[in-house]
Amino acid sequence: MTTALATPRSQRRPRAAWLRSPLVNQLKAPVVCIGLTLLLWQLLCLGNTEGFPGPIQVISQTWDPYISKPFYDDGGTSKGIGLQILISLQRVAIGYTLAAVVGIAAGMAIGLNAFLRRGFDPLIQVLRTVPPLAWLPISLLLLQQADSAAIFVIFITAVWPIVINTAVGIREIPQDYTNVARVLRLGKRSYVRDILLPATAPYMFTGLRISVGLAWLAIVAAEMLKADGGIGFFIWDAYNAGGDSSTSQIILAILVVGLVGLALDRLVGLVGDRVAAGGR
């Protein structure tokens, strides 16, 4: 952007030129602010060596084995953070895929049929506000098994935004496109493939993106209550162990949960941009 303007100056002061490169420019603010936060945190924790760890302790206490060997497996539930994340991701993958399939199908039915829409709308509005964990007891009763129950919680948490957004997308198909379909008397198949799906795809992906965040939220919570494995279990297990490095392990796990959640969000966003390009 400003490279043309910056050139004569950087010739005069060549040493400072790298400071104005776009990458440095972008990273400057986050690096400074996060650095200051870490510093403040460290300073606040300086006095007490027994209590809450500062960032340096977090890293030193969890370096071996949690950071250096993320995929270690000592058998049983003693596994590295990487493996725990994979267990959680697997559950999310199953529950979220189910939610996507069911949600898109139900959203289409509701979007296309006014009777179904009016009939189910109150139910959807109520159920979508239920917090993920409220579903856990009933899903344990229903499915008996902790793993399936966790997957069901993901499903039931993630399905609503997909249903709602798909239905809205179908109702929002511009009149222009349906007029084209009517003049050409497009058959059902062609209408779905050439108009309905491409016009609705951006809305579907909006729903899918909201849902992946909710699914990740739900799995960590569900695993903390009832699971043998997964990152939520890891956090709860560290808390219960109450060892010297427990707090550090929990902090590290929280950071990893956040990063993975961000990655999931970006991934769905990226796929959506690819698939639904030009849809709006």
Binding site: D176, Y177, N179, V180, R182, V183, L184, R185, D194, I195, P198, A277, G278, G279, R280
Partner: peptide
Amino acid sequence: RPGPDRMVVFQNYSLLPW
């Protein structure tokens, strides 16, 4: 009803953007 024997050029083009 509408049909392709009476094609329409709509005011706002109505092309499919995808």
